[in-house]
Amino acid sequence: MERRLSMSNKESTLGNMVIALLVITFVASASLGGVYEITKEPIAAAKLAKKNSAISQVIPEFTNNPGDEEYKIPVDGDTLYFYPGRNGDQLIGTAIETFTGMGFTGKIKVMVGLLPDGTINDVAVLEHAETPGLGDKMERKKSDWSLQFQGKNPAEFKIAVTKDGGDIDAITASTISSRAFCDAVEKAYKAYMNNK
């Protein structure tokens, strides 16, 4: 076959086209499979590390592995995940992975740590898509807003923004995000008390 310098020198016959596409797709899927195998464990590890660091942030120091004692309770068409933390045999707090669909731009996932009597020990945001500069102040590294949940017992402290008659000061200009956050915390508290 005569070789031309620029552009393809293969004719567009059906056979040529099928072979070219087959070879390319085969090589592509094989290399993706390879990369997937290599990254599978680091990805799982990164996810686990994130969850574990949230758990140890929201409940007091524990000696067990809360991830091993995970239990689930279905709520509102989704699931809450419970991670009990123990010091020896004694339950010292439960980390609850909770959610809300009321966020400004979708779902928000929060880890809430409750002491055995239901008092909130601490909260940590796991996932959200709230507006940067506004709703994302719910993240601890962006602002101290979420500190106001610490040490409050929802039995006497109403988890709702002041606009709705609650005791939480909303993030400036982000009432919707704050309301959603309260919804997630409230959900975790109720599920915990009902299943105690």
């Binding site: 086209m17 070219a20 390319i24």
Partner: peptide
């Protein structure tokens, strides 16, 4: 690298597969 081996008519789909990978 592969420009000489891909027939013209399936050029775009092949590029898309490569980019997507």
């Amino acid at each position: 690298l592969i420009k000489n081996f891909v027939p013209d008519k399936v050029r775009i789909p092949s590029f898309i597969v490569i980019i997507a990978s």
